[in-house]
Design a protein around this nucleic acid. Structure first.
Lengths: 235, 235
DNA sequence: TAAGCGTCGATTGTCGACAGTTTAATCTTG
DNA sequence: CAAGATTAAACTGTCGACAATCGACGCTTA
């Protein structure tokens, strides 16, 4: 006898994931610069503001620490991480390493379905290119890159990418503007997809390497251009 | 007046880093198999055993979760991660990606000092090869690889490597024995160092790729060979 | 007889409290 | 007046407590 209702694809509702929520709030605050680099993150303050106790805040803060957005000095608390030029170099260097590899794997896993998804995302890039919403543009840009890593099919690769992402968002947030013309970015990504579809390892690696390295150069230039006192990036 | 004893270069006895200590204890328990894959990690149990409260235990558990050693099911607690063949493949795939890159960077940063350090570590490998202490041998093996990533000079690269390391230790722990003859391992590493000193990018990458892939194959073989019921590795 | 329903102990998520430490602000003192 | 000592306020690290929830087990019922 079967009385149990059949499994319908409902999203498991985890309304009690306070830690996760706090982590999201904090991440947002950091990448938007609402919490400036070097700023102290007072547990009790955050807790009071969110109407909760300190315990979940502490756990969330540890998460962000592991992600590299916060640093903790024992007995002194958590602080928003200050990025130095050297950090930005590390971030992009690792990103090249990870994303080139992901691209190679993705090319092998490319199916009509996810190929279409990538195409669609490029359309989104074109659409948002005319808007003045820079944050949105950055978001869609990353989404494209993330999709490739997803297609690569390695959870660990994706985790590394995601951790890097928040750091990169922080950097972009500090710069305060895009590192390139949004239309050009959309076109570039179109080219990336083509190369991916082509499927030649050397070309894929070289192309992704170049693409990310270009962003690296631009970001580096822009960061150096802004006085460090105003952006929290030390030389 | 200065009554405080002068700072000695001791391992910064931060006696109040409970979370760190707990994290170390838990990590050890997991990689040694003392906590078997799939086992539930009861917060109160750990806390009582260590004579502390649950708060630090929770924070430590979150750390290990982020590291991939534990998984948390909301409202059900933390469990020791069960590794599947797929995970092992992911781990080694990422390790190749990361370590090859690290090796290239390390070759560029190679100085007489750290070159000597690597040589010395190879000596240690030879010395411990005769011992029957497998755990020690594995440890020294990783130390060599870690040194290379350290020389590469990227904190983020090192972090990725360290996270992977604990997972790899877990795998090795499950297998329960070395994947190769320790003397052969020592020799192989000697060859790696030579290639590193030579300084040709292509050769370095190819050699490290091959070296790690070989371990991957061996580990994969050994894992498959053991009935999954006894080792916690699902197929 | 087996799916579904209470019930009960075990465990998690969260909270408020307290001691000890750090930071700042104020007060000395040469 | 500046450098150091002193005090007060703020904050962290840790704890124990409590309600909410989960899993197991036996009970009901079709």
């Amino acid at each position: 006898m079967r009385l149990m209702s059949p499994p319908v694809g409902l999203a498991a509702l985890t309304d009690t994931d306070l830690v996760g929520q706090v982590a999201r709030v904090l991440t947002q605050a950091v990448v938007t610069g609402q919490l400036a680099p070097g700023a102290k993150v007072v547990e009790a303050g955050i807790a009071r503001e969110l109407g909760i106790s300190r315990a979940p805040v502490r756990e969330a803060a540890r998460l962000l620490e592991q992600q590299g957005l916060l640093v903790s000095h024992p007995r002194r608390g958590f602080f928003v991480r200050k990025l130095e030029i050297r950090d930005i170099d590390e971030i992009y260097d690792l990103r090249i390493c990870v994303e080139c590899h992901a691209a190679l794997l993705a090319a092998k896993n490319l199916t009509p379905a996810n190929r279409a998804a990538l195409r669609k995302q490029i359309d989104v890039l074109h659409e948002t290119a005319d808007l003045e919403d820079h944050a949105r543009q950055v978001e869609e840009d990353y989404k494209f890159h993330r999709m490739i890593v997803e297609i690569a099919g390695s959870k660990r690769l994706l985790k590394v990418f995601d951790d890097l992402s928040s750091e990169m968002r922080m950097v972009i947030g500090l710069i305060g503007r895009l590192y390139d013309d949004p239309h050009r970015i959309a076109q570039t990504h179109e080219a990336l997809l083509e190369v991916l579809e082509q499927g030649h390892d050397d070309i894929i690696a070289a192309r992704f390497d170049y693409h990310i390295a270009a962003a690296w150069r631009e970001v580096g230039r822009l960061v150096r251009e802004i006085p460090s006192s105003t952006n929290g990036v030390a030389p």
